[in-house]
């Protein structure tokens, strides 16, 4: 004679996973994989850009980009590389502004985000760094 064993085990799976903290209403969503990837890429580039900001070779434009301000502050052999650096930084910045707008469900905010960043990059910049004022002239902070 066989004995039938019947057993139902209820296991509590996924019980202790924490629910995500509720998002504050006043915050914009910036924790997306795309934004994180762009942030990482810009962070890695920053060590190189910082010395160019210091030397005045590169400055902040009023449209949220960086631009070559004084190529002569850079040795000849590195001017090409600086141009490439500026091009990649601006590409990342454009993608960042677009991604933030998209992550918050309002792609049409891209230009507003860009404008906000333009102003924040400049006001957070260190003393001695250069930026473009409203009329497009370079100003030393």
């Amino acid at each position: 004679m066989r004995t039938a064993i019947f057993f139902t085990a209820a296991l509590a799976a996924l019980a202790s996973l924490l629910p995500a903290p509720a998002l504050g209403q006043a915050n914009l969503e910036i924790n997306t994989p795309a934004i994180a990837a762009l942030q990482r890429s810009m962070q890695q580039r920053h060590s190189q850009l910082a010395s160019l900001y210091n030397s005045g070779a590169v400055g902040f434009t009023r449209d949220g980009n960086v631009a070559l301000r004084d190529a002569k502050a850079v040795p000849l052999a590195q001017r090409q590389q600086v141009n490439a650096l500026i091009a990649s930084e601006n590409q990342d910045r454009a993608a960042l502004y677009r991604e933030i707008a998209r992550a918050n469900g309002h792609p049409e905010w891209e230009n507003d985000i860009r404008a906000t960043f333009a102003q924040r990059w400049i006001s957070r910049a260190q003393r001695g760094w250069y930026y473009q004022n409203a009329s497009g002239a370079w100003v030393r902070k």
Partner: peptide
Amino acid sequence: FPAAAAEKAADRIIDEVWQL
């Protein structure tokens, strides 16, 4: 456009990128 929130978001990202 939530300007204040955008500024806050920008600052957080700038902190991150510039390691501030």
